[in-house]
Write a protein that binds this DNA or RNA. Structure first.
Lengths: 364, 364
DNA sequence: GCGTCTTATGACATCGGTGACATGACATCG
DNA sequence: CGATGTCATGTCACCGATGTCATAAGACGC
């Protein structure tokens, strides 16, 4: 591979002059510049970032660690592969900053994380982002204090800056919107209880009910997610069966995620129930391939993954450039998304829905 | 950030000795080694890959260019986001080789590709892989001849080594299996005609029919994919309506992909048809979140994306190490996957299905 | 006891750029 | 006209590792 010295020789100038042409940091005569440019083109010269980095000590690289890429074929934990959208958001935000995003995948094994961090440090990344597969608490190995790091879709207990979804608000807004549509018996088929999101969503569910003066009825809340195990459909079937036989059955089923909603569609139809006239269904995630493909399209809550990524990246960039931003911060940054109202929920009452302003656009 | 010189000073040895401890390429006294190790730990020393690369001229980096990460939120071209699985496969294969995979995303804009390649060359990657979003022909900018490159899920017309799915064989095997199950009137709701995959799949469809002595009936083949546009469901509805009114209606609907199959499920059920007893449905892709979640689970063809990735990476690694492998090759490497037989297709005939050996395991 | 070999270590140049500084040729100004 | 400034370019050291060669201390063989 050609070097500046090769270029300099061909162009008949000094290496430093070639460097100046490359960086434009000092005036170079028009004629000389053209000579150099021609020599570079002729040799197919590409500068070595390694050599450049040695002097400047600036790599221009931001490291991203994720399981997003390898997760999908795993036994499928909670949601699906939505953390990928976070990576997209980060990608977009970093792209505009002139830095290069280097993505490393854990391959599903979190024990590889220290090794990945080590590799990034060897490349002298200017900052790190860790993206978790679902909203959770994590514990990462220690990072040198001069390398900023941001957690996306997760948090730790030592105050590392983080950006997470506002699960409580999302579920709250959905239930509030269902109430506005005239629903009073709102069933909630929850996620597994060990998930951080589940606790927060239940809070939101109850808050929305109590704000509307509706009593919380535990018989309408049940965990139906076994993490994709075989008998999950059976459990769903039994639960729905039980609820529909109640003297005062639910008029809408809120599902812990859109995937569960797909199953519920199949079950309800096998029971001969018409959607949405006889029973309404809502999801969570706005997993669009599903939500928009289903018939009728699914009402759900947008989980603003892309926005989480963008915010996390912006936060990191701020930490990199302005050393003034504190590296440790108090609370995680909460990001919420709008309720996506589609055909799977029946409007049972004519009410001034718009005045509720539930469908926010603030996550743009 | 500490350097070997800092470590050397603390340990009271020369820099070269520290280097020897790091690389283990020459004998170092036990006592000295421990002193050095302690100094490194104390300083939190991390070697600089830039400096190392300067001498050795070996980066240990493999570059991957893809739109996989940014595509999903685009207007959703053909399939879904399956190219991600290719990236997974590559990840797995590279991981074991001791090299580091650096992933760059096009952000959905192919005009950024030259810039990404340039960045990779600056980092002196040892090889490049380009992953396309769907089976297609591509034209990449020229790469220096000494940097090997492999195309995954795509090909070009200058003989760059490539690995692509065997669409003809996949569709053939599915149809052959349907025939073995007793189906004779097999409808095919195709992908858009401009896709490479569509042409190949039609070949496979017709080949399987003719091998079974079944006449090709054009009335059973229709394109129903508008690339996710609004009226797609309507088009599907009309097409299915027309086919079901035929004097000799189809007993099974083959869909161009699993996503279309989800729509078809909804439509058939809205028409009051029971799956799979009154009508069978098959997909393509084995997009498992859908295929396994649907009720009943969807029979489909596994599109072996992960295998494509693994093969592409293996091929690249061979090119990197053994310079003997030719950089230009004759034909793309074809990868095929098994038919995934699930509950959405009814067995209409008792036949010795297993003897057909349609369900291959050759993609591991 | 002396030459030879192995072990353990250091001095120094080198990789490909860039920062600091120097130099020569003009242009401008008082 | 000499002092000063700007432009265009070159010289040289340096960033942090590692390859080459040198050197000193023991171990071994005869």
């Amino acid at each position: 591979m050609a070097t500046i010295y090769d270029v300099a020789r061909i162009a008949g100038v000094s290496a430093k002059t070639v460097s100046r042409v490359l960086n434009g940091d000092a005036p170079v005569g028009r004629e000389t510049r053209e000579l150099v440019a021609k020599a570079m083109a002729q040799l197919g010269y590409v500068p070595s970032s390694a050599a450049r980095m040695m002097r400047s000590n600036k790599s221009g690289i931001v490291g991203l660690i994720t399981g997003a890429i390898s997760l999908p074929n795993e036994p499928a934990m909670p949601s699906g592969l939505p953390d990928l959208f976070i990576v997209q958001g980060i990608q977009r935000a970093i792209e505009g900053s002139g830095k290069t995003l280097m993505i490393a995948d854990t391959g599903g094994r979190s024990d590889r994380i220290p090794h990945l961090i080590q590799t990034f440090l060897q490349h002298r990344v200017e900052g790190l982002i860790y993206v978790a597969e679902y909203h959770q608490k994590v514990t990462l190995p220690a990072i040198p204090a001069d390398t900023p790091i941001v957690l996306a879709n997760c948090f730790d207990d030592i105050g590392t800056p983080s950006v997470v979804p506002d699960d409580a608000r999302g579920q709250h807004d959905l239930v509030a919107r269902l109430i506005a549509a005239g629903h009073r018996r709102i069933a909630y088929l929850t996620l597994p209880a060990f998930l951080v999101a589940d606790g927060l969503r239940r809070q939101g569910y109850r808050a929305a009910l109590s704000q509307a003066g509706i009593a919380y009825d535990p018989v309408l809340v049940e965990c139906c997610d076994l993490g994709g195990r075989e008998d999950e459909t059976q459990l769903l079937w039994d639960t729905i069966d039980r609820m529909m036989r109640l003297p005062d059955p639910p008029t809408v089923l809120c599902c812990g995620n859109d995937k569960m909603a797909v199953r519920v569609y199949g079950i309800l139809r096998s029971r001969g129930l018409k959607l949405p006239t006889e029973i309404s269904v809502a999801g969570y995630d706005n997993y669009r391939v599903m939500a928009e493909t289903l018939f009728p399209p699914l009402t759900t809550v947008d989980l603003p993954y892309a926005a989480i990524g963008v915010r996390a990246a912006q936060r990191l960039l701020a930490m990199i450039s302005g050393g003034d931003t504190p590296l440790r911060d108090t609370d995680p940054m909460l990001i919420s998304g709008p309720v996506c109202w589609r055909g799977s929920v029946m409007e049972r009452a004519i009410s001034n829905v718009l005045s509720l302003n539930v469908i926010r656009e603030d996550t743009k």
